[in-house]
Design a binder for these strands. Structure first.
Lengths: 208, 208
DNA sequence: TTAAATTACTTAACACCGTTAGGCAAAATT
DNA sequence: AATTTTGCCTAACGGTGTTAAGTAATTTAA
């Protein structure tokens, strides 16, 4: 009598179809033109059924935001663990991971930080988001502790780092899709150089 | 037979009413909830008459963007002229002007750089916008020329500065209205310190 | 002064949007 | 086999930007 299980499975499958269709539309036309009716069209249902799976459109978007932070968190965690013995290098690696995530997942980043989402908020209910902030903040604290300004505010340094990186990403992500960010050849692109320079500057301000 | 003149004057007055009503709504409810019908309600007309003054909603918003850049340009120009003899100080003053504009004209800034406007684009059809970029870029070139890295790219330095400032503003403008940006007492707030630090860092990278 | 032409404005509609209520038919349970 | 539950759709509400058609007032011309 696995009828309940089957129905649950079917419902879960429709949920996936909704997310897949939504993601497809976003990739093709952008977040701006994503609508419940368009999603329903693609999965050959009518729009009200979506409300059986997501409370409203915002909740649906929130699901993508959540997924984005999970992925971002993975990448930052990898960078964290790869430089566990060197705090300045770790900080740079984590922000580079952030940078790479933004360009490998443009649409996600735009939803996570761009349009209306409260940007750079430490508390936003998504645990992975807080874990990202925690890893970066602890590294900053480590750098500050080993430097000549132990009274520096790590939170403000975090904001400063974030503003450089996010600002640079903002420049590149909305406008020229491939103008400045061309990693075609082996040489790192100019933006990455700027980024590393800026972070190195902040680190040096913490140390000296 | 000044009937034509009178009609022109009347039409111009309605145009002003439209802009005033729109601005009032924005200040009360934000850009998100500004609609043509709401504007029409306030000026006691119906929505189609707005299209006699503005081609569409985007054109109306564009008018506010333009006005914003005019004001921003004034402030940056004043800073430019106040430090005509000292390029590093001039650069800092111009970015501080930018910073102050953003917080004195939150709604304008949000429209100019925030929501969907292509951020930091050098060419966007608004002459004042280009003048701002020109003043900053020429100052950066002056600094670079007097430094030890004459081959540095001024455009990229401009982007770096802009990303720091815009990033910091983004943090503060969307979230806590008065949390970090409290200039109540005489002491400059912490964000301004960060800002000056960051710009000083970039300048020092150009010089040394 | 009266008829024609222009202008100013409104009403109604189109095509969207997010969201909800009600109904119908198929499926599952009793 | 009758009843309950479920899944899904149709229709609608109130909102959006925008356009076309029509009406009433004003200005111009005869």
């Amino acid at each position: 009598m696995g009828v309940k299980e089957r129905k649950l499975r079917q419902k879960e499958e429709v949920r996936c179809q909704i997310l897949d269709a939504a993601w497809q539309i976003v990739k093709e036309e952008g977040w701006q033109s994503l609508s419940m009716r368009k999603i329903a069209d693609r999965i050959e249902y009518t729009s009200p059924i979506i409300y059986g799976h997501f409370e409203n459109k915002e909740a649906l978007l929130q699901e993508f935001t959540r997924k984005g932070f999970v992925k971002l968190c993975e990448m930052i965690r990898a960078a964290y663990q790869a430089h566990i013995d060197n705090a300045p290098a770790r900080l740079e690696a984590m922000w580079m991971a952030y940078w790479n995530f933004a360009f490998a997942n443009r649409e996600s980043y735009q939803l996570m930080y761009g349009v209306e989402m409260g940007c750079c908020t430490i508390k936003n209910g998504i645990p992975e988001s807080e874990e990202c902030a925690e890893m970066i903040n602890s590294t900053i604290q480590e750098i500050i502790a080993s430097g000549k300004h132990p009274d520096a505010d790590p939170c403000l340094k975090y904001f400063t780092c974030w503003s450089v990186v996010h600002g640079l990403i903002s420049i590149n992500i909305t406008r020229n899709p491939e103008a400045l960010h061309q990693s075609d050849d082996d040489s790192p692109n100019l933006n990455e150089l700027i980024l590393k320079d800026a972070i190195a500057g902040i680190v040096s301000q913490m140390l000296n």
